[in-house]
């Protein structure tokens, strides 16, 4: 985005949440294993592939986990079926807990 028109820089920051740190930690580990399970460039390519409105709506680490998931599927580390089962299970686990 170098050189594009943009507004003033707002000096924003926040303490990273636990889930955000987990996402970061997973990327560090997946990219530094030998052999690598994914590359940082795959992470970036996945983020760049987001349509502009999705990119704007998502937070930083939401984009990361989206892209990490895609790369792991692409590289054959995780299958779509495993992911969909697990996601359902996790979602229902927390929904039940909240009741």
């Amino acid at each position: 985005m170098g050189g594009l028109e943009a507004g003033h820089v707002k000096p924003t920051e926040h303490d990273y949440e636990f889930w955000e740190k987990n996402v970061d930690a997973m990327l560090v580990l997946l990219t530094s294993k030998s052999p690598k399970l994914m590359s940082v460039d795959q992470l970036r390519k996945g983020i760049e592939s987001l349509p502009p409105d999705a990119y704007e709506k998502m937070s930083y680490y939401e984009r990361w986990i989206f892209s990490i998931t895609q790369a792991l599927q692409y590289n054959g580390v995780l299958t779509t079926e495993e992911l969909s089962r697990k996601l359902e299970e996790v979602q229902s686990r927390y929904e039940t807990e909240e009741v």
Binding site: S39, D41, Q42, K45
Partner: peptide
């Protein structure tokens, strides 16, 4: 080359 790494060629 990042252009190759981006496609999973490590």
């Amino acid at each position: 080359n990042p252009e190759e790494l981006a496609f999973g060629r490590f």
